[in-house]
Design a protein around this nucleic acid. Structure first.
Length: 500
RNA sequence: GGGCCCAUAGCUCAGCUAGGUAGAGCAUCUGGCUUUUAACCAGAGGGUCAGGGGUUCGAACCCCCUUGGGCCCGCCA
């Protein structure tokens, strides 16, 4: 049974899947696993014939933790302020929106359409007010839960609500000094003191309390999260206890997902620079493949992502699977994987990516490539083709191994050939001139005959031809390769070599 | 110190929440097609399922232990 299906199979009643990412930096492929796992589960529930909805929380009330490597030193003064109160590193708007917006676009192209909720707005609208009253009322019980389960001791001055200083704007430098009628009084390290209204965005609950509070006020029933939260004594453990004992709400079903590693580099983190931003991966990978990468394996397994040849293999695997699906030969499990890889557009028009990586190295013109594919009997959706051509170009430029790249030699470029090799090339050249139909098979046959007639071993003959054309011992399948290049161009090159 | 995941053919992995004769792709070898950016077709060889113990008529699968590897674990998220 498909992993997504077995997970949700026994659930009853309407489900609400919740995910969230703190928009503190560029969102990368590793972070994408959170939201895609949520989306896969949400859609699995629907596919299983049950009711569900899907929310995404942008935690823009979270404070900036530190000056990340990608930020200017001047951001030091913003450390401790909520992300939604900090200016964007570039351009206008807020820090949180600056990183959130590109991510939203990425989500859209991945066909992930949750109900987006900004945590800051929940605070602003007083949604956390009532539950915060309860938290403060039961603060001793909560303290005990946190201390017992997480095994750490809280400071004497600990208070389950962090007021935001109305003077310096930080929420990590205040100390609560009292509570009365929905207002928390505080003093701040900046010297200021005041009151913070828990029914407004004048402070926030600490993470370990905010999380279960969100479950309760948003009626969450299932939530995926990274393994770091799932560790013993971690925030899921304490959240579970708090939500049940204090908030009287059943703990949501947990779904712990493993990390995504970059092949040969290690786990993806925004801070280490080992990562591929979401926009970047979508610049060379069709969205279906990004979904497929997450959908094909259970969440408990780590994923090693190889953007070079490994990516091409995943592409092939996916295209093969698509073909099976079209022929209705998929197993139940494969069928689910196909359904969950869908990015909201028609699959049968996704073009042959590997093929395109060769074509884009020969032609700049999209029109040309389109015509060639047409001649081969493939007619992908024009829009998708054009998009995928751009992706294949990007892949060749940025990720392809050297062995997968080539440059067609110019007519008069020098080439080092022995007498025998030259003789064979010229024989091929002469034979090629009489080839009427400029088609892969005909050309290939012509090459074989010419090599044979020259007395060279086939493998040496092909190497020689590639050397003359691209200065390399290997190249794309010869017949196909020459067929997509103008005959005159090929003849001109060989003619020049033969002194014709 | 604690937790999660992984260990199955040379390589990458499936099979483990149905316990019932060990699988796929690639690689290798044979035959066909007188190579081709990891070509295609037909076939073959290849495994002490990391090791040990337990449960069972029967274990890759369930339980315990050991070994090796990956990741996570103050606060904050």
């Amino acid at each position: 049974m498909y992993w997504g299906q077995s997970l949700i199979h026994e659930l009853t009643g309407k489900q609400r899947v919740s995910t969230g990412i703190s928009p503190s930096g560029p969102i990368h492929l590793g972070n994408l696993r959170e939201i895609l796992t949520g989306d896969i589960i949400y859609k699995s529930i629907l596919l299983d014939g049950k009711e569900a909805d899907f929310i995404y929380l942008a935690d823009d009330m979270d404070p900036l933790r530190k000056v990340y490597p990608f930020l200017p030193e001047s951001y030091k003064e913003h450390v401790g302020k909520p992300l939604r109160d900090i200016p964007a590193p570039q351009g206008r708007g807020t820090y949180s929106d600056y990183y959130l917006n590109p991510f939203m676009n990425a989500m859209k192209s991945l066909d992930v359409k949750p109900n987006v909720i900004k945590t800051g707005e929940l605070y602003r609208d007083g949604k956390f007010g009532k539950i915060t009253e309860k938290v403060i009322e039961k603060k001793d019980e909560i303290r005990k839960i946190l201390e017992t389960i997480s095994g750490r001791e809280l400071e004497e001055s600990w208070f389950p609500y962090n007021p935001k200083c109305s003077s310096c704007g930080r929420i990590n430098s205040t100390t609560a000094t009292g509570y009365m009628d929905g207002k928390v009084s505080y003093t701040c390290k900046c010297g200021h003191g005041g009151e913070s209204d828990i029914y407004r965005d004048e402070g926030k609950l600490p993470w370990r309390i905010e999380w279960p509070a969100k479950w309760k006020i948003l009626n969450v029933t299932i939530e995926p999260f990274g393994k770091d939260h799932g560790t013993v004594g971690g925030s899921y453990d304490t959240g579970k206890e708090i939500v049940e004992k204090i908030f009287d709400y059943p703990v949501p079903l947990s779904l712990i997902y493993e990390r995504i590693l970059l092949k040969g580099k290690g786990a993806m983190h925004s801070s280490t620079g080992i990562n591929i931003p979401a926009e970047e991966i979508l610049s060379f990978s069709p969205p279906e493949i990004v979904r497929y990468i997450m959908a094909r394996v259970p969440t408990t397994r780590h994923i090693e992502f190889d953007p070079a040849l490994g990516f091409l293999n995943i592409m092939d695997e996916f295209e093969r699977l698509m073909k099976l699906e079209q022929e209705k030969k998929t197993t139940d499990e494969q069928h689910w994987i196909v359904a969950l890889s869908n990015a909201g557009r028609s699959y049968d028009t996704v073009p042959d990516y590997r093929h395109l990586t060769t074509l884009v190295q020969i032609y700049d013109s999209e029109e040309r490539i389109r015509n060639i594919m047409k001649k081969e009997g493939k007619e992908p959706d024009p829009l998708i083709l054009s998009e995928t051509i751009g992706m294949a170009r990007k892949w060749v430029r940025a990720y392809a191994p050297e062995s997968s790249k080539f440059v067609l030699k110019g007519k008069d470029d020098p080439v080092d050939l022995s007498e025998d090799e030259k003789k064979m090339i010229c024989l091929f050249y002469n034979n090629l001139r009489s080839v009427e139909d400029w088609e892969p098979e005909k050309i290939h046959e012509c090459a074989r005959e010419s090599i044979g007639a020259s007395g060279m071993a086939p493998s040496d003959g092909f190497k020689t031809i590639y050397r003359a054309l691209i200065g390399n011992d290997r190249g794309p399948r010869l017949g196909f390769f020459l067929s997509v290049i103008q005959k005159e161009k090929i003849l001109a090159r060989f003619g020049a070599i033969c002194g014709d």
